[in-house]
């Protein structure tokens, strides 16, 4: 078992799942992060807000998990929207050219309200 150094807090808000992610997502734990996100989709929750204010580090492996969730949710007419992404998250998304893929909101409330 990999020593995980991110935390995920999931709040079920009826129409939307609010997922707060913080810490570090790299190649050593991206698979775990991916599993957690897949669990949400398995429960049939396809409208997801990821609050990424506390993410200190994310690599391309972490981005792939985000895109995989987006793909799954879009299939079911859902979406993945980001709230308060940290500077690191914004930078890595932009570096990957993926910044236009996710709608970004200033806080969780407005991201949740957008659904």
């Amino acid at each position: 078992m990999t020593d995980s150094s991110f935390t995920v807090n999931i709040e079920d808000m009826k129409r939307v799942e609010l997922v707060e992610v913080s810490g570090r997502i790299d190649s050593s734990n991206a698979a775990q992060f991916d599993d957690i996100l897949k669990e949400i989709a398995k429960r049939g929750k396809y409208n997801v807000v990821l609050n990424m204010a506390g993410v200190e580090y994310i690599s391309s492996a972490g981005l792939r998990a985000l895109v995989a969730l987006l793909r799954e949710n879009k299939k079911h007419r859902g979406d993945v929207r980001l709230a308060q992404p940290s500077e690191r998250v914004v930078e890595v998304l932009s570096l990957a050219g993926l910044d236009s893929l996710f709608a970004v909101y200033n806080d969780s409330a407005s991201a949740v309200g957008s659904f």
């Binding site: 391309s60 981005l63 792939r64 895109v67 995989a68």
Partner: peptide
């Protein structure tokens, strides 16, 4: 997004 994910 399917194709995109594949490419990534």
């Amino acid at each position: 997004t399917d194709e995109l994910s594949q490419q990534l």
